[in-house]
């Protein structure tokens, strides 16, 4: 019983506990962490492991809380009224269900992912307080109350771009995904590259953590970037010896573009490598 990670996703003990607590107590779980530590993937893998449907609500800067509940398509109603369509008399025909509504009325307890909640307006989380707490809302146009059949498992991710209001946080459980240690990283890579050559993996991990340890890098490479990089290394069939070759003329690791995404970072890294070699 409970979530223990999947064959594609290694979840730390803390994360498993947080997820299971949220499932048991039917509270939304807020997940934060460095970009690329698998926040969004958690919801996908969780739904897969529970065999539940996944409803994804991706938040943008223009997303309004109301859109998650329902939208009243006033414009098509206006058009229909001009055309004398009979549908126009029933306002219910113009109510478009949002993700929350879908989640509330699902037959089986679904997983609802509210992705990157911090992208939205600063008031956005406050507008969802009651809906997430009581798992119900009121449709004014049709005067009906939508109550969740069963409380969906809600996973909310945030990249820390905006501070979330306290009242909202009180209603959630919270987990901060830490960047994995070397051992955990090896496990993660085992899952993604079961057939990778052992020495290549070793060397790649070493250079990866070396890059992460370089002070002053603006965007540190993350797990997903490491995975991409390894994919490239494997695809190009680059031998492990190239990675090891510290005093090669070429200071940067091969295909570094997958790891360092900022020209200043690349420049800085080049400089440091140059200094290290002297």
């Amino acid at each position: 019983m409970g979530f223990t990670g999947t064959k594609n996703y290694i979840a730390s003990k803390e994360l498993q506990l947080a997820v299971n607590a949220a499932i048991t107590l039917e509270k939304p779980l807020l997940i934060k962490g460095e970009p690329g530590t698998g926040k969004t993937m958690l919801a996908e893998e969780l739904s897969a492991s529970l065999g539940a449907d996944l409803l994804q609500w991706h938040i943008k800067s223009t997303t309004k809380a109301q859109q998650g509940l329902y939208e009243y398509d006033a414009v098509s109603r206006l058009r229909d009224s001009q055309l004398g369509d009979a549908r126009v008399h029933n306002i219910g025909n113009y109510i478009v269900k949002g993700k929350l509504w879908q989640a509330f009325t699902a037959e089986k307890r679904p997983v609802l992912l509210i992705d990157e909640i911090d992208k939205a307006d600063i008031e956005f989380p406050n507008d969802l307080l009651l809906e997430l707490d009581k798992m119900e809302f009121f449709v004014y146009e049709t005067q009906e109350r939508i109550v969740a059949k069963q409380r969906p498992i809600v996973i909310i991710t945030s990249n820390n771009e905006k501070e979330l209001p306290d009242a909202f946080l009180r209603r959630c459980f919270f987990h901060y995904i830490q960047f994995p240690e070397r051992e955990e990283m090896t496990q993660i890579l085992d899952v993604h590259f079961p057939n990778i050559k052992k020495d290549l993996l070793e060397k790649a991990l070493t250079s990866f953590f070396q890059i992460r340890d370089v002070g002053g890098i603006k965007k540190k490479p993350s797990t997903s970037e490491l995975i991409d990089w390894l994919k490239l290394l494997v695809a190009d069939d680059i031998p492990a010896s190239v990675l090891q070759d510290n005093d090669a003329k070429n200071a940067l690791p091969p295909l570094y573009g997958a790891l360092l995404k900022n020209e200043q970072d690349i420049h800085l890294f080049e400089k440091l490598m140059f200094m290290a070699r002297r």
């Binding site: 803390e14 947080a18 607590a21 807020l30 934060k32 009180r170 459980f173 919270f174 987990h175 901060y176």
Partner: peptide, 11 residues
């Protein structure tokens, strides 16, 4: 870990 998940909402 449980107490941290439930009680603390900011890293």
């Amino acid at each position: 870990f449980l107490a941290r998940t439930v009680l603390v909402k900011d890293e």
